[in-house]
């Protein structure tokens, strides 16, 4: 398992290739990448704040749960912080399992929990000013299915 919390951009292709090269007996790899939406050209930047220390602990705990529940053979989470521009990748997850159902489920579980249990806060900087992104009730409700 690999967890990276970083300010720097990452190379989705290179990270995916490195992950796939190390998954051993897996028959399925699922990857998800989250991007900064450009919101019709009105967004100038997305600023992401986090809680160093708790971020790593919270994500590691979520990854441990995913591994235990779906027999995940390997998992990767990369999540950026700092100032990002529209179109840039914010984060990616990758999961490897023997079969695709487990890999998909584990990736969705990781995404749902990263949204509302990993201590990141997004601020949208637009032409008219800056505003913190409010958490969505739907994101909290999504945890109920697990």
């Amino acid at each position: 398992m690999l967890l990276l919390v970083q300010e720097a951009a990452f190379d989705i292709g290179a990270e995916t290739a490195a992950f796939v090269a190390g998954v051993g007996a897996a028959g399925a790899v699922v990857t998800f990448t989250g991007l900064v939406r450009d919101e019709g050209g009105t967004l100038q930047a997305m600023e992401i704040e986090h809680y160093p220390g708790m971020t790593e602990r919270a994500i590691a705990a979520i990854m441990d749960q995913a591994v235990a529940r779906w027999s995940v053979l390997d998992a990767l989470v990369i999540h950026r912080h700092g100032r990002l521009r529209p179109g840039e990748a914010i984060m990616m997850v990758a999961t490897a399992a023997r079969h695709r159902a487990e890999a998909f489920a584990a990736a969705e579980f990781l995404m749902d929990y990263l949204k509302s249990r990993a201590p990141f806060w997004k601020k949208e900087v637009g032409v008219g000013g800056a505003e913190w992104v409010a958490a969505k009730d739907a994101d909290e409700a999504a945890l109920g299915r697990w």
Binding site: G34, H50, Y51, G53, M54, R57, A58, H79, I90, M91, M111, L114, K115, S116, R117, A118, P119, F120, W121, K122, W132, V133, A134, A135, E140
Partner: peptide
């Protein structure tokens, strides 16, 4: 101490308290 908690939780032995809005990761 870097674990989500609640407002009625005790502070005995706690070294670090953090307050923040609901998280918006991912």
């Amino acid at each position: 101490d870097q674990e989500l908690s609640s407002f009625d939780a005790g502070l005995s032995g706690v070294r670090e308290v953090a307050f923040f809005p609901p998280m918006t990761g991912g």
